[in-house]
Amino acid sequence: MSNLTISPSPHVHSADSVKRNMYGVIIALLPALAASVWFFGTGALCVLLTSIVSCIVIEFLIQKFILKVPTTISDGSAAVTGLILAFNLPSNLPIWIIIIGAVVAIGIGKMTFGGLGQNIANPAILGRVFLLVSFPVQMTSWPVPGAIDGSTGPTPLGLMKEGLRSGKSVSEIIDKLPSNVDMLMGQMGGSLGEVAAICLLIGFAFLLIRRIITWHIPVTILATMAIFSGILNLYDPEAYATPLFHILTGGALLGAIFMATDYATSPMTPKGMIVYGIGIGLITILIRTFGAYPEGMSFAILIMNVATPLINKYCKPKRFGEVAK
């Protein structure tokens, strides 16, 4: 007889694993991935492959040769980072820029902090924001879906910002924009993952069913965005876009569902998640309406990522037996 195993209780496990969660996120992103390839063709495929492969390779190289620790590429977290990074890029981005983005995302965003779970900011967003401020021209020339000649144009948010800046009213600009239904189905310019709202919502449903994330963060972000932009819109409908427009355009859904909910960089308690979600929603709309950039989701998430440790410190869960103050 071989030796008995002894260990403290509990002796059973849910069989949940890092892999299950990470591959769950990848599965949830598949509809949007299919949509992006459908709309942008081979360009999208090229960006996706480059981003995912370079993220995995960079993680492998850093762990193998610099940190000299066992590699963790099989847990799927690097692939998720690569996928989300790709979803934040335009489909005609040169390959070398994508690789730089991957180096920043994995190398600086993740590995310098100690790898999986230790990072302060979402690696994919860090990579994306780095590229956005370093290569603004390439990062903001968005191919128009279905355009065979490879012509580029601004996103609906960009059009809105330009229009408002040049003194036009919202109703004038709206005429030039795709309809809400078109935006839901993905008929608009933008980065890979932003274009098909409906696919992202399918992914959200999947994540909720598999209990990979909870509803708190996405719902509070979108609700805050809707309420805040709604108030502005009621105040002056000609100067501020409608809530629906804000939610359907840009990275609102992608950010709220897939990027803000990143485990390592979001708060740990429901209360904290709601504070975090409200923060992201407010900052996004602030940047979109009053800031220099047409889109503020990435910056909002980064800012709230950094605030997460503080939120964790002050938003404790409701303790059992605690009397409400």
Binding site: L4, I6, S7, P8
Partner: peptide
């Protein structure tokens, strides 16, 4: 004579 499979800490192992 046994396989200990808990957290790798003497304090924890000896408490159990």
């Amino acid at each position: 004579t046994l396989e200990y499979d808990g957290a790798k800490s003497c304090a924890i192992a000896s408490a159990n």
